[in-house]
Amino acid sequence: MASGHMSVEEVKKHTRIYWVIFSSLLLLTGVTVGISYIHLPFTYAVILALVVASTKASLVALYFMHLISEKAVIYFTLALTAFFFVFLIIIPWFIPWDFATH
């Protein structure tokens, strides 16, 4: 419960989690920077970078933004947004380029 009434002990427990998340985020930042120095083949580099970034983003969203215990109305909004976001992101793969080179 993020917005409800929490006891001081509960909040304290939360704050400990925040610092754990913080160290995980630092660790993952190190990982993603480290990977970039290896110069993997492009496809693998992209996949790895996005996996790490998504993990970090999920940690932030779930714990700092309290999405792990949020209400249905928020989930609904975000699910809708995520769905249309996917459409936005797949646009580029359907844009032809050959007219530019002819």
């Binding site: 993020a2 917005s3 970039s36 580099a45 970078a49 970034a53 983003a57 932030v60 700092f64 933004m65």
Partner: peptide, 24 residues
């Protein structure tokens, strides 16, 4: 809490920006 949500979102955008622009 709301200001925090916004701030986390700004952080979140950067989490994606950083690898996509700088590391690839």
């Amino acid at each position: 809490e709301c200001a925090g949500l916004y701030w986390h979102f700004v952080d979140l955008v950067w989490i994606f920006l950083f690898p996509i622009l700088y590391l690839l």
